[in-house]
């Protein structure tokens, strides 16, 4: 069933999961920005990475996505370094989504063409995706004139349209209105239910509670705690987590 949704290119590409990082270290001008000994993203569900500003959440996500190289350590996708051909099974919504200077539909089509769908197939799927997201009205609008909420929703629709095995989201809802936040959370949860693995960076604890199956707390570039959502909030294991939940944790 799910296999049918993928393009021939995607079916041929090696799997992405599990994603692992070992001995990851990034420092700048003597200051350690990231120090993560061991992390693995596997299985099912949605992981939310929380932590105060500057904790290294986005940096970790970018390293695991292969967009940045660590000073030390290695990132592996199913045992091998991230490779170009496997980005077709991986999606990411960047903190500042880059929309192409084309129509909304053409943006989605472009992503579908990149994973190997034919021109007509890409158009059909793009229209379906926009319909499902309730954005069909905007299909022909210029992507560069959308509102902030619409932009992020388009970035998400575009990333989900290719049915990736793994989706990264880097603070996709920061500074959005509540309706847009809800729309985005719903789309992520729907995709998650259908089997997509998701990892999201957020600094809103309420949001983490709503969407996360699992929480990772970062502080000063380290992973302080990783636990199932209920456990994290009800039985925090560290003082740092306790302080963070209570809103007392500063940079």
């Amino acid at each position: 069933m799910r296999e049918n949704l993928l393009s021939a290119v995607q079916r041929q590409a090696m799997p992405v999961l599990p994603v692992t990082g070992t001995g990851l270290r990034v420092s700048r001008k003597g200051r350690v920005l990231l120090d993560v000994d061991d992390i693995e993203i596997a299985g099912q569900g949605t992981t939310v990475i929380v932590g105060p500003n500057g904790a290294g959440k986005s940096l970790l996500l970018n390293l695991l996505a292969g967009l940045r190289q660590p000073d030390r350590g290695k990132v592996r996708w199913n045992g091998t370094p991230p490779s170009r051909s496997r980005y077709c099974r991986f999606g990411m919504v960047l903190q500042h989504a880059v929309l192409l200077r084309r129509s909304v539909r053409a943006n989605v089509e472009y992503a579908l063409r990149a994973v190997g769908h034919s021109r007509t197939e890409a158009r059909r799927r793009a229209e379906t995706s926009l319909d499902e997201a309730g954005m069909e009205r905007l299909a022909h609008a210029s992507a560069r004139v959308l509102s902030g909420g619409e932009r992020q929703r388009l970035a998400l629709v575009r990333a989900l349209a290719t049915h990736p095995d793994l989706l990264f989201l880097d603070e996709p809802t920061s500074s959005l209105d509540p309706a847009s936040v809800l729309a985005i959370e719903t789309m992520v949860q729907d995709a998650s239910v259908k089997g997509m693995r998701a990892v999201m960076v957020a600094h809103d604890l309420a949001q983490a509670k709503r969407v996360a199956d699992e929480i990772i707390l970062m502080h000063h570039g380290r992973i302080v705690e990783r636990a199932a959502t209920d456990n994290f909030f009800q039985r925090p294991q560290s003082e740092t987590a306790e302080a963070f939940i209570a809103g007392r944790l500063l940079i």
């Binding site: 980005y87 960047l94 990149a114």
Partner: peptide, 11 residues
């Protein structure tokens, strides 16, 4: 502006 996005497309 586009670098990361284009890498994500595997281009």
């Amino acid at each position: 502006e586009y670098r990361d996005q284009l890498v994500l497309y595997g281009l």
